[in-house]
Design a protein around this nucleic acid. Structure first.
Length: 648
RNA sequence: GCGCCCGUAGCUCAGCCGGAUAGAGCGACUGGCUUCGAACCAGUAGGCCGGGGGUUCGAGUCCCUCCGGGCGCGCCA
């Protein structure tokens, strides 16, 4: 509704300015600095002042007196030296919300939006850095869907890369295990933890025995050829770890639609097709001299911002093998349906909620939906890979797919590092240098990091202590479920509260906190609203007929209270908050909104006893406001992927 | 060397397309539990928005420059 009035007002003013001043201005609306100034502020007179060479105050005065009426607006006021402040008709506004609580503004862009996230190497347990990626990606997906878009969630699996190969080397060459033995191990719990340690071991082994890298090359070769024990081990490891990752992410409510795998990209020769295309369109050329002699390269000028003498990027090595970026270009072409090839698919599994997840396959099995061929693609990848993402987009452009290039977005985010204090807690030895830093980078090779499942377990345990002390009478299983929701809410909120380009220095003490700006704070507020309604029913009461009791006049009476009005206004801005977060691509904005909303309600909750209210109209109003708040906060939390526990 | 990001309260961070007196959480200090359960609320202290130039009626926000920090820049993935 807020949104609606805002839009109506903007177009009314734009039309008036065109007619009366013969000028065009981009009408922007702002939130007034103080609530007492009204609901919206328009700096339009300042913009026009320059064009018209007239003082802003005079322009504002003309706008104020001449403007046609806009429904829902009761007054325009001039403030400062030319601000036009807008006051809403409170009774009208409140009533409109009773009639239509949720906005009908939703209309997504046409076509399918592809969001690729998670993309963890399937060779070891997921860590907190991966959590940031998956939570950001998943929340962005929920935001887009809330904005009415059709979204496909992809999670790319590099099951043939060096990282998988290294773990295979560990099993085969260091431990001398057969595929059958590894398969047995993979069936046991926490295989991903086992591989975490093994990967760190083999990485350090390479350091001491450089000649052992020969094993890696041999393994990579076997995996690519798809033959022999080493290839079989590769499949066993990668498949089992993918299962672990899916399970970890499901704990946070994160699901995928399709898992395209590198093994199928190789087998179905995606690269060969892309290579022909790149050559044909002259996006790459065969270098005949200099350091890149014998390689197929992309001109540096195609992607680099260094205008002096940008380095060319090798796409195909002089030995004929393709680089990572080359494969990525082929994959990105597929995402837009521009490669002229597709995967086959098989159903990997169905989630408990019934949602199916498909995985790429060499032969078709089952009737899969049409994957890929998106109108837009968002790649959720950390900012360290921005250079490579630029090359991929330049590749699309060079091939002539301007449109695809423009619709490719690197949804980047900064890394998650560890606070020095947390490193100490983890028993890691820090150098003098590290100790002074504000954060220390995680390293999979060194096994340095916080595993996702460990963190979730720790959060649940911490939450359970609180739940147990508050609700000792509740069944143990139920308490555990409540603690789980609190824990995952805390974790998701923690990862979302920072804007994307801020480095997170992960700190246990901070992440395990349930007070202040945290997920549980917001959940608690929703629980309180629910409690009011539940208590009402427990006492034999029923919800009043809001449509009958809360007439426009009644609303106007109740909303004379500044406290009620401000809360109502804040709640009614959910749509605006969602839209703003989608437009800015910043889930943190929505998280912040949820927090502020919770704050407003908590203060209201403290001040006013809803059920004890004796005046029937006022009581009905308070109940309606409480329920309206509850529904809008729950909707917002749902988009953040945060569930509300039954009690706290 | 080149490129990208960051620098705002003691700490961690917000600050929407440039707009009115720069905000929140934590920490510190004062108060508030007779249950719609305090995982909360009310209040106090705390800021040269890294420095310096510029553009503008107006700059935390845009431009230039310097300082400090992070991350990239391979015929690795």
């Amino acid at each position: 509704m807020f949104h609606h009035i805002e839009r109506e007002l903007r177009s009314a003013i734009a039309a008036y300015v065109r007619a009366e001043f013969d000028a065009s201005a981009i009408i922007t609306t702002e939130q007034p600095k103080q609530p007492s100034f009204g609901e919206l502020a328009l700096p339009v007179a300042f913009q026009l002042a320059r064009q018209l060479k007239r003082p802003p105050r005079a322009i504002a005065e003309q706008l104020r007196s001449g403007m046609p009426r806009v429904a829902g607006i009761s007054a325009l006021e001039i403030a400062g030296n030319g601000y036009l402040n807008v006051r809403f008709d409170r009774g009208w506004y409140g009533r409109a919300l009773v009639d239509q609580p949720a906005g009908a503004w939703i209309q997504g862009r046409p076509g399918k939006t592809i969001v690729e996230h998670t993309n963890i190497n399937p060779n070891k347990a997921a860590h907190i850095g991966h959590l940031r990626n998956a939570i950001l990606g998943d929340t962005f997906v929920r935001m887009l869907r809330a904005a009415g878009e059709t979204v496909e969630v992809q999670n790319y699996i590099d099951n043939t890369g060096v990282q998988v190969a290294d773990v295979v080397v560990g099993f085969h060459f260091l431990q001398k295990r057969t595929p059958a033995e590894v398969a047995a191990l993979a069936a046991e719990a926490r295989f991903d933890y086992y591989c975490w340690d093994l990967y760190a071991r083999i990485s350090s082994y390479y350091g001491d025995h450089p000649e052992a890298k020969q094993w890696r090359h041999q393994t990579l070769h076997s995996i690519e050829a798809g033959e022999g024990d080493l290839a079989e081990l590769g499949h066993i490891v990668a498949d089992a770890i993918v299962d672990c990752h899916l399970a970890t992410m499901l704990r946070l409510g994160i699901e995928y639609d399709v898992l395209p795998r590198e093994s199928e990209i190789l087998h179905l020769r995606f690269w060969a097709t892309a290579f022909e295309l790149l050559k044909e369109r002259q996006a790459i050329y065969l270098e005949t001299e200099g350091k890149n002699s014998g390689c197929w390269v992309m001109r540096g000028s195609a992607f680099s911002t260094d205008t002096e003498n940008p380095d060319d990027k090798v796409i195909v090595r002089s030995n004929g093998t393709v680089t990572y970026v080359g494969k990525d270009i082929a994959y990105q072409l597929w995402k837009f349906g521009l490669l002229g090839k597709d995967f086959h698919y098989r159903l990997l599994k169905s989630y408990p909620d019934g949602h199916p997840v498909w995985i790429s396959a060499i032969e078709a099995r089952g009737e899969a939906p049409r994957f890929g061929a998106g109108a837009r693609v968002y790649n959720v990848i950390d900012s360290r890979q921005s250079y490579l993402q630029d090359v991929v987009v330049a590749g699309l452009r060079a091939v002539g797919f301007q449109n695809a290039a423009e619709n490719s977005t690197h949804f980047s985010y900064e890394m998650v590092a560890l606070s020095p204090r947390t490193c100490v807690e983890l028993g890691l030895e820090l150098s003098e240098e590290d100790r002074k830093k504000s954060h220390v980078e995680v390293s999979g090779r060194k096994g340095l990091g916080v595993k996702a499942d460990d963190l979730i377990d720790k959060l649940i345990a911490t939450a359970l202590v609180e739940v147990d002390s508050r609700h000792p009478e509740a069944p143990a299983e139920e308490r555990r479920q409540v603690a789980t929701r609190i824990a995952t809410g805390a974790l998701r909120y923690f990862m979302l509260k920072f804007t994307r380009n801020s480095v997170i220095a992960f700190d246990f003490q901070e992440a395990l906190s349930f007070e202040g700006e945290t997920g549980p704070f917001v959940q608690y507020s929703a629980v309180r609203a629910r409690n009011i309604i539940r208590k009402l029913e427990e006492r034999g009461g029923v919800m009043p007929d809001f449509a009958a009791v809360l007439t426009e006049e009644a609303m106007a009476r109740q909303l004379r209270s500044e406290d009620f009005w401000q809360l109502l206004l804040a709640v009614s801005k959910a749509d605006s908050a969602i839209e703003r977060a989608v437009l800015s691509g910043e889930p943190a904005h929505l998280a912040k909104y949820a927090f502020q909303l919770a704050q407003s309600f908590n203060s209201f909750y403290h001040e006013y006893a809803v059920l004890a209210e004796e005046d029937p109209e006022r009581r009905a109003f308070l109940l309606w406001l409480t329920d309206y708040f509850r529904s809008q906060l729950e909707r917002t939390l749902g988009i953040l992927g945060i569930e509300v526990p039954e009690y706290m």
